[in-house]
Simulated scan of single mutants.
Amino acid sequence: MQKYWILSLALCSAPLVSAQSLMVTSFDSIAYVNSHNGIQASAHISVKNTSASVKDYRLLRSRIGTTGLVDSNYFCWDLCYPIWVNQSQGTVTIAPGATANDFSGYAYVRDTSANGQDSIWYTFVNTSDANDSLQVMVVYAFNRYVSNSESSLPLLSVYPQPALAGQRIYGIPTDALKLEWMDLAGRVHQVITQNDGSITAPSAQGIWILRAYFQNGIRTTRVLLR
Protein backbone atom coordinates (compact mmCIF):
# COMPACT_ATOMS: atom_id res chain seq x y z
CA MET A 1 0.00 0.00 0.00
CA GLN A 2 1.25 3.44 -0.86
CA LYS A 3 2.54 5.23 2.19
CA TYR A 4 1.61 8.85 2.59
CA TRP A 5 3.27 11.68 4.37
CA ILE A 6 2.85 15.38 4.72
CA LEU A 7 5.52 17.92 5.33
CA SER A 8 5.63 21.09 7.40
CA LEU A 9 7.25 24.27 6.17
CA ALA A 10 7.05 26.87 8.92
CA LEU A 11 7.97 29.92 6.92
CA CYS A 12 6.15 32.27 9.22
CA SER A 13 9.13 32.14 11.56
CA ALA A 14 11.82 31.66 8.91
CA PRO A 15 14.35 34.48 8.96
CA LEU A 16 15.16 36.20 5.68
CA VAL A 17 18.76 37.33 5.40
CA SER A 18 19.33 40.23 2.99
CA ALA A 19 16.95 38.70 0.47
CA GLN A 20 17.38 41.32 -2.24
CA SER A 21 16.88 39.11 -5.29
CA LEU A 22 14.97 36.01 -4.13
CA MET A 23 11.48 35.47 -2.80
CA VAL A 24 9.53 32.32 -1.97
CA THR A 25 6.61 31.86 -4.37
CA SER A 26 5.07 28.62 -3.10
CA PHE A 27 5.30 26.38 -0.04
CA ASP A 28 3.23 24.26 2.37
CA SER A 29 2.16 25.95 5.60
CA ILE A 30 2.19 23.15 8.19
CA ALA A 31 1.65 19.38 8.24
CA TYR A 32 3.00 16.15 9.69
CA VAL A 33 4.43 12.78 8.72
CA ASN A 34 2.98 9.59 10.17
CA SER A 35 6.04 7.97 11.75
CA HIS A 36 4.30 4.60 12.02
CA ASN A 37 3.76 3.98 8.31
CA GLY A 38 5.65 6.78 6.55
CA ILE A 39 9.07 6.52 4.91
CA GLN A 40 10.23 10.10 4.61
CA ALA A 41 8.90 13.64 4.65
CA SER A 42 9.59 15.77 1.60
CA ALA A 43 9.77 19.55 1.29
CA HIS A 44 9.44 21.52 -1.92
CA ILE A 45 10.13 25.25 -2.11
CA SER A 46 9.87 27.45 -5.19
CA VAL A 47 11.93 30.65 -5.32
CA LYS A 48 11.76 33.56 -7.76
CA ASN A 49 14.52 35.86 -8.95
CA THR A 50 12.99 39.32 -8.54
CA SER A 51 16.03 41.17 -9.88
CA ALA A 52 16.64 42.41 -13.42
CA SER A 53 19.60 40.11 -14.16
CA VAL A 54 20.43 36.42 -14.40
CA LYS A 55 21.86 35.01 -11.18
CA ASP A 56 23.40 31.73 -10.01
CA TYR A 57 22.48 30.38 -6.59
CA ARG A 58 24.03 27.68 -4.47
CA LEU A 59 22.29 26.03 -1.52
CA LEU A 60 23.54 25.60 2.03
CA ARG A 61 22.13 23.35 4.72
CA SER A 62 23.06 25.93 7.31
CA ARG A 63 21.66 24.39 10.48
CA ILE A 64 20.06 21.16 11.75
CA GLY A 65 17.97 20.85 14.91
CA THR A 66 19.31 19.03 17.95
CA THR A 67 16.56 16.54 18.86
CA GLY A 68 17.89 13.82 16.52
CA LEU A 69 14.58 13.48 14.69
CA VAL A 70 15.96 14.93 11.45
CA ASP A 71 19.53 13.62 11.67
CA SER A 72 18.88 11.35 8.67
CA ASN A 73 18.14 13.78 5.87
CA TYR A 74 19.23 14.95 2.44
CA PHE A 75 18.46 17.76 0.02
CA CYS A 76 18.42 18.29 -3.73
CA TRP A 77 19.31 21.45 -5.64
CA ASP A 78 21.53 21.03 -8.70
CA LEU A 79 22.17 17.46 -7.47
CA CYS A 80 21.10 15.51 -4.39
CA TYR A 81 23.37 15.68 -1.34
CA PRO A 82 23.54 13.33 1.68
CA ILE A 83 23.75 14.33 5.33
CA TRP A 84 27.54 14.73 5.33
CA VAL A 85 27.48 17.38 2.56
CA ASN A 86 26.19 20.78 3.70
CA GLN A 87 26.67 22.80 0.51
CA SER A 88 25.74 22.17 -3.10
CA GLN A 89 28.70 21.62 -5.39
CA GLY A 90 26.98 23.35 -8.26
CA THR A 91 24.45 26.11 -8.75
CA VAL A 92 21.02 26.70 -10.24
CA THR A 93 20.73 29.60 -12.68
CA ILE A 94 17.55 31.66 -12.43
CA ALA A 95 16.68 34.21 -15.08
CA PRO A 96 15.17 37.58 -14.09
CA GLY A 97 11.53 37.13 -13.16
CA ALA A 98 11.80 33.33 -13.42
CA THR A 99 10.90 30.79 -10.74
CA ALA A 100 13.05 27.77 -9.83
CA ASN A 101 11.40 24.59 -8.52
CA ASP A 102 14.67 22.69 -8.09
CA PHE A 103 14.79 22.52 -4.30
CA SER A 104 13.56 19.53 -2.35
CA GLY A 105 14.44 18.49 1.19
CA TYR A 106 13.88 15.12 2.84
CA ALA A 107 13.92 13.68 6.35
CA TYR A 108 13.67 9.94 6.90
CA VAL A 109 11.51 8.37 9.58
CA ARG A 110 14.12 6.81 11.88
CA ASP A 111 11.79 5.53 14.61
CA THR A 112 8.25 4.23 14.03
CA SER A 113 7.28 5.51 17.49
CA ALA A 114 8.70 9.01 16.91
CA ASN A 115 6.54 11.84 18.21
CA GLY A 116 7.80 15.40 17.93
CA GLN A 117 9.28 17.87 15.49
CA ASP A 118 12.55 19.48 14.52
CA SER A 119 13.86 21.91 11.96
CA ILE A 120 16.44 22.25 9.20
CA TRP A 121 17.53 25.66 7.92
CA TYR A 122 18.37 26.02 4.21
CA THR A 123 19.99 29.11 2.70
CA PHE A 124 19.90 30.11 -0.97
CA VAL A 125 22.99 32.22 -1.73
CA ASN A 126 23.82 34.34 -4.78
CA THR A 127 27.30 33.17 -5.85
CA SER A 128 28.25 36.72 -6.89
CA ASP A 129 27.15 38.34 -3.64
CA ALA A 130 27.22 36.42 -0.35
CA ASN A 131 25.04 39.09 1.26
CA ASP A 132 22.26 38.35 -1.22
CA SER A 133 20.66 35.29 0.39
CA LEU A 134 17.38 33.81 1.50
CA GLN A 135 17.08 31.49 4.49
CA VAL A 136 14.09 29.19 4.97
CA MET A 137 13.39 27.04 8.02
CA VAL A 138 11.70 23.72 7.28
CA VAL A 139 9.89 21.99 10.16
CA TYR A 140 9.55 18.21 9.93
CA ALA A 141 6.93 16.90 12.37
CA PHE A 142 6.61 13.21 13.31
CA ASN A 143 3.54 11.64 14.92
CA ARG A 144 2.50 7.99 14.66
CA TYR A 145 -1.17 8.77 15.28
CA VAL A 146 -1.74 11.67 12.92
CA SER A 147 -4.01 11.01 9.95
CA ASN A 148 -2.43 11.39 6.54
CA SER A 149 -4.41 13.47 4.07
CA GLU A 150 -5.35 12.00 0.72
CA SER A 151 -3.28 13.43 -2.07
CA SER A 152 -4.40 14.52 -5.50
CA LEU A 153 -1.29 12.90 -6.93
CA PRO A 154 -1.54 9.46 -8.57
CA LEU A 155 -0.58 6.49 -6.43
CA LEU A 156 2.92 5.14 -6.95
CA SER A 157 2.18 1.50 -6.13
CA VAL A 158 4.73 -0.56 -8.05
CA TYR A 159 5.04 -4.33 -8.36
CA PRO A 160 6.45 -6.88 -7.85
CA GLN A 161 7.57 -6.07 -4.31
CA PRO A 162 10.22 -7.14 -3.51
CA ALA A 163 11.64 -7.20 -7.01
CA LEU A 164 14.74 -8.67 -8.61
CA ALA A 165 17.59 -6.27 -9.29
CA GLY A 166 17.70 -5.38 -12.97
CA GLN A 167 14.20 -6.65 -13.76
CA ARG A 168 11.24 -4.68 -15.06
CA ILE A 169 8.93 -3.08 -12.46
CA TYR A 170 5.34 -2.13 -13.25
CA GLY A 171 2.64 0.13 -11.85
CA ILE A 172 4.15 3.48 -12.85
CA PRO A 173 1.41 6.07 -13.58
CA THR A 174 1.71 6.93 -17.26
CA ASP A 175 1.31 10.65 -16.54
CA ALA A 176 4.60 10.75 -14.61
CA LEU A 177 6.80 13.27 -16.42
CA LYS A 178 10.12 12.06 -15.02
CA LEU A 179 11.34 9.16 -12.88
CA GLU A 180 14.46 8.94 -10.71
CA TRP A 181 16.17 6.07 -8.90
CA MET A 182 17.87 7.24 -5.69
CA ASP A 183 19.83 5.39 -3.02
CA LEU A 184 19.13 5.93 0.68
CA ALA A 185 21.78 8.67 0.83
CA GLY A 186 19.75 10.72 -1.65
CA ARG A 187 22.09 10.25 -4.61
CA VAL A 188 20.32 10.09 -7.96
CA HIS A 189 21.63 7.14 -9.99
CA GLN A 190 19.30 7.20 -12.96
CA VAL A 191 16.85 9.63 -14.57
CA ILE A 192 14.14 8.37 -16.95
CA THR A 193 12.02 10.70 -19.07
CA GLN A 194 10.30 8.09 -21.27
CA ASN A 195 7.48 6.40 -19.35
CA ASP A 196 5.38 3.50 -20.64
CA GLY A 197 4.09 2.44 -17.22
CA SER A 198 7.12 0.35 -16.29
CA ILE A 199 10.76 0.90 -15.39
CA THR A 200 13.93 -1.19 -15.14
CA ALA A 201 15.18 -1.60 -11.58
CA PRO A 202 18.80 -0.80 -10.70
CA SER A 203 21.24 -3.70 -10.95
CA ALA A 204 22.37 -3.43 -7.31
CA GLN A 205 20.42 -5.14 -4.54
CA GLY A 206 19.13 -3.25 -1.52
CA ILE A 207 16.53 -0.59 -0.70
CA TRP A 208 16.01 2.05 -3.38
CA ILE A 209 13.82 5.15 -3.59
CA LEU A 210 11.80 5.67 -6.76
CA ARG A 211 10.77 9.29 -7.27
CA ALA A 212 8.10 10.28 -9.81
CA TYR A 213 7.48 13.85 -10.98
CA PHE A 214 3.93 14.83 -11.94
CA GLN A 215 2.42 18.03 -13.25
CA ASN A 216 1.24 19.04 -9.77
CA GLY A 217 3.82 17.47 -7.48
CA ILE A 218 6.19 14.64 -6.63
CA ARG A 219 5.56 11.15 -5.26
CA THR A 220 8.19 8.73 -3.89
CA THR A 221 8.11 5.09 -2.84
CA ARG A 222 10.57 2.57 -1.47
CA VAL A 223 11.48 -0.51 -3.52
CA LEU A 224 13.32 -3.55 -2.14
CA LEU A 225 15.56 -5.27 -4.69
CA ARG A 226 16.93 -8.77 -4.24
Rank of each mutant, 00 (worst) to 15 (best):
F142I: 01
S133V: 00
A204I: 09
P162S: 08
W181R: 06
L179V: 04
S198P: 08
N115A: 13
V136P: 04
D102M: 05
D196G: 10
L134C: 08
V191P: 12
V139M: 12
H189A: 08
I169E: 04
D196E: 14
I192R: 10
A212I: 03
G217H: 12
A212K: 10
Y106P: 02
G206A: 12
S151V: 05
D196V: 05
T99M: 05
S198F: 14
G105A: 06
S203L: 14
F124Q: 01
V136E: 00
Q190T: 07
N148S: 15
V191M: 11
S203K: 14
Q135G: 10
N195D: 11
S113D: 08
V191T: 15
Y108A: 05
S119E: 03
A204N: 12
T112C: 05
R168C: 07
D102Y: 06
S128I: 00
Q215V: 06
A176I: 00
D175L: 08
I207N: 15
A141E: 04
L177P: 07
N115H: 11
V158C: 09
Y213I: 03
V125I: 04
A212D: 07
A100W: 03
G197W: 10
I120D: 00
Y108I: 00
E180D: 10
A130H: 06
N216P: 08
I209W: 02
V125K: 02
G105Y: 02
P202S: 11
Y145L: 14
T200W: 07
N115C: 09
G217Q: 13
I172C: 13
T174S: 14
P154R: 12
I199H: 07
N195Q: 11
G186D: 03
N101W: 05
L156Q: 07
F103M: 01
R144Q: 13
Q117I: 01
I169N: 06
N101C: 04
A114D: 02
Y140H: 12
S104Q: 06
M137F: 01
L153K: 13
Q194P: 01
A107L: 04
V191G: 08
A130C: 00
S151T: 14
T200E: 10
P154G: 13
L134V: 01
G166W: 07
R110H: 02
V125Y: 01
Q215H: 12
L153F: 11
R211S: 07
R211P: 09
Y140I: 01
P160F: 10
R211T: 02
D118L: 05
S198T: 08
S157Q: 15
N195I: 08
Y213V: 04
D111I: 04
E180C: 10
A204F: 09
I209F: 07
I120A: 01
R168H: 04
